[in-house]
């Protein structure tokens, strides 16, 4: 008997329907023609419900991140590459070398397959560029109105090389705070597309995988105390987390914090503070004062750390405040974000 003809998935005009999540033929075909084809690697090709692999020596790191950004496509990226970068960065912030990713999709009935394909291609590209394969995954479909196009959850595994101990509780008074580049780009790029805000800007999201930069930093200064990527809640929130975890105060200098002119202008008329606006391709590092210049030089030598700057230092403070010396000459608190500036930014 000849194999029956199977009509290929219509990625031009088709839409996600309930059968794509039913576990039947339609789902298998979507996996085959889209996910398997784009993510292609030897673990996926085994077609198991899980991936198994050897783990190099060191401490294992795991991180997971759900992505619900709206709009799905934005200047400089989309939900696909964002979901790869976000989780790789969470793994890398432990000083780890990322090994692989798992990806889980929740699709809404009626979502255009063309958009899904575009997102999956972008994810595959990001994973390939980062050298971190997507080795297992899952797809579910919810009825129209029960989701918002597509939500993507990614989980990443990585290994911390022996002798590296990066953790948010290791900042000590005297330590220097370094940021890897200009802040607020991602948040402003997203906001510029929101229906009630639309304004024109050439600012693009900074979404990027930072494990290469982290590797270069660790090669230069193995004893980095803290690393964190200031995503939701921005630099201010990250600094408050680190101050609380480490049990010290942090003091930054407004004039040293890199902010692009367009970002500060957009924040000015939207009534936002760039310190609280999300980033997706920046990190904050804290290290001993004697290591600071060496670390800064290593960062500036990497394309993703070209605009790195020392922005302040850790200070003794039983209240664990983050303070800022304003360019104006006064001093104020940089507090936790209250409420939310804008929802669904990542």
């Amino acid at each position: 008997m000849r194999d029956g003809y199977v009509r290929p998935v219509d990625f031009r005009h088709g839409r996600v329907d309930m059968t794509h999540g039913s576990g039947g033929r339609a789902m298998a075909q979507l996996i085959d023609e889209l996910f398997l084809r784009e993510f292609d690697n030897r673990w996926l090709r085994q077609m198991n419900d899980q991936a198994s692999f050897e783990v190099p020596a060191g401490r294992l790191v795991v991180a997971t991140d759900s992505h619900v950004v709206s709009p799905l496509f934005f200047p400089g990226g989309d939900i696909g590459c964002l979901s790869v970068h976000g989780t790789i960065n969470d793994v890398a912030m432990a000083g780890a070398v990322p090994l692989n990713l798992a990806a889980s999709f929740i699709l809404e009935e009626g979502f255009p397959l063309a958009d899904l394909q575009r997102i999956v291609v972008s994810m595959a590209g990001a994973a390939r560029d980062a050298g971190v394969p997507i080795v297992t995954g899952d797809t579910k479909v919810v009825e129209r109105g029960k989701g918002d196009g597509v939500f993507i959850t990614t989980t990443g595994l990585g290994v911390v090389p022996p002798g590296i101990d990066v953790s948010g509780d290791r900042a000590r008074p005297g330590d220097r705070i370094i940021v890897s580049g200009s802040i607020g780009d991602h948040g402003v790029a997203i906001m510029s597309l929101r229906e009630n805000l639309s304004f024109e800007t050439t600012i693009e999201s900074d979404t990027a995988a930072l494990h290469g930069l982290v590797a270069a930093m660790i090669a230069a200064v193995p004893d980095i105390h803290c690393l964190r990527d200031p995503t939701r809640g921005g630099l201010a929130t990250t600094l408050n987390e680190l101050a609380g975890q480490s049990g010290c105060g942090l003091l930054i200098h407004e004039a040293s914090v890199p902010v692009r002119g367009q970002v500060s202008a957009a924040c000015e008329f939207l009534g936002l503070d760039p310190l609280y606006v999300a980033n997706e391709g920046k990190l904050v590092a804290i290290c001993a004062p004697d290591d600071a210049l060496r670390l800064l030089a290593a960062m500036r030598a990497h394309p993703l750390g070209r605009d790195a700057a020392i922005i302040g230092e850790a200070i003794p403070d039983p209240h664990h405040f983050v303070q800022m010396e304003t360019s104006f000459g006064g001093r104020r608190i940089v507090d936790w974000l209250t409420g939310e500036q804008l929802p669904r930014i990542c």
Partner: peptide, 16 residues
């Protein structure tokens, strides 16, 4: 509260 409350408590504010 947001910008100035550190002045209400004895805080070591000298940078290192």
């Amino acid at each position: 509260y947001t910008y100035g409350r550190f002045k209400d408590v004895a805080v070591v504010t000298e940078g290192a």
